[in-house]
Design a protein around this nucleic acid. Structure first.
Lengths: 129, 129
DNA sequence: CCGAATCCTAAGCGATACTG
DNA sequence: CAGTATCGCTTAGGATTCGG
C-alpha cells in the first residue's frame, strides 16, 4: 500500500471530486441510493446526456477507492447492486454544496449552471421531462 | 464571447482551481503579491520542485482569465511584472482553506500533505531551507 | 528578468461492442 | 442488469529551446 502525496490538502479534495461526472454522482446518491442503470438514467434526465458506461464505472470505482461511495452487491440473479454515500461522502456533498453556493455568488454572464444548489439539497424537485 | 456551461456550480469552481499548481499559486499570492520569478522560487522552496515556466505561465493566465489573479505590468526596463489576488481570488482562497481543513479532518495514512491549512493562513511561517 | 514556441507522454473521456 | 474490453481523440503538464 503506497502513500499519495499532495502539496496541499485541497489538492487531495480536488483530486477526489475532479472528474466530469463525480460531483453529479455524489449529488445524486446524496438524494438516495441508486442502482447503476438508475444512476445513468437519472443523470440523463438531469442533463440530457448520459455518461458512457465505462466512464461511469470508472468514476464510481474511484469514488469507492476514496471511500466516498459504497457498493452493495445483493448477490442475486438477475444482479442487483446498489451505490450509496458513505459518511465521508455525505460530508463531501455538503462541501460541494458550499462550493456551488460560492459559484452562484461569483457567477456572471460568462457561465451558466444546469442544476442549482437548492436542487442539490433536495429543496426543489425539478420537473425534468 | 461565448458562455461556458456546467452541470453544477461546483464543477465551475473545480475547473478554476484544477491544475497542479493553481491552489499553491492562489495560496502564495494570498500571502503577498509576487513577481514571476519570485513565485517560482517561492514554490520551489515550499515543495522542492519548480513548475515548468510554461506551466506556471499557463496556469497564471487561466487564473487571470477567471479573474482570480491580477497582473500588473510596470512597463519599465528591465521588466517588472507583479501578480496578486483579486477580490474574487481572496474569497476563493478562503474556500481553499476550508477544503484543506476538511481534508485534514478526513485524512488517513494513505495520504499526506506538504503544507498545512495553518501555513496557508500565514499562522506559522515555516523555515524552509 | 519575463516569459512564448515546440515537442512529447500520460491520462480523461467518449463510442462501440461484448460478457456473466 | 451490471458491467468490461478496445479504440481513438483531446488535454495537462514536463523538458527544452528561443526572444524582448
Amino acid at each position: 500500500m503506497e502513500q499519495r502525496k499532495y502539496f496541499l490538502g485541497c489538492n487531495y479534495i480536488i483530486s477526489i471530486v475532479d472528474g466530469k461526472w463525480k460531483p453529479s454522482i455524489i449529488c445524486s446518491l446524496g438524494l438516495g441510493a441508486k442502482r447503476f442503470g438508475e444512476l445513468r438514467h437519472y443523470l440523463e434526465k438531469l442533463y440530457g446526456i448520459t455518461p458512457a458506461e465505462k466512464v461511469l464505472s470508472e468514476q464510481l470505482h474511484q469514488l469507492i477507492a476514496d471511500r466516498v461511495v459504497r457498493r452493495t452487491d445483493y448477490g442475486v440473479m438477475p444482479p442487483k447492486v446498489v451505490y450509496s454515500l458513505t459518511d465521508r461522502g455525505v460530508r463531501l456533498k455538503k462541501l460541494l454544496i458550499q462550493m456551488t453556493e460560492f459559484a452562484e455568488q461569483i457567477q456572471d454572464d460568462s457561465v451558466s449552471f444546469m442544476y442549482g444548489s437548492d436542487e442539490m439539497k433536495g429543496i426543489s424537485r425539478p420537473n425534468h421531462k
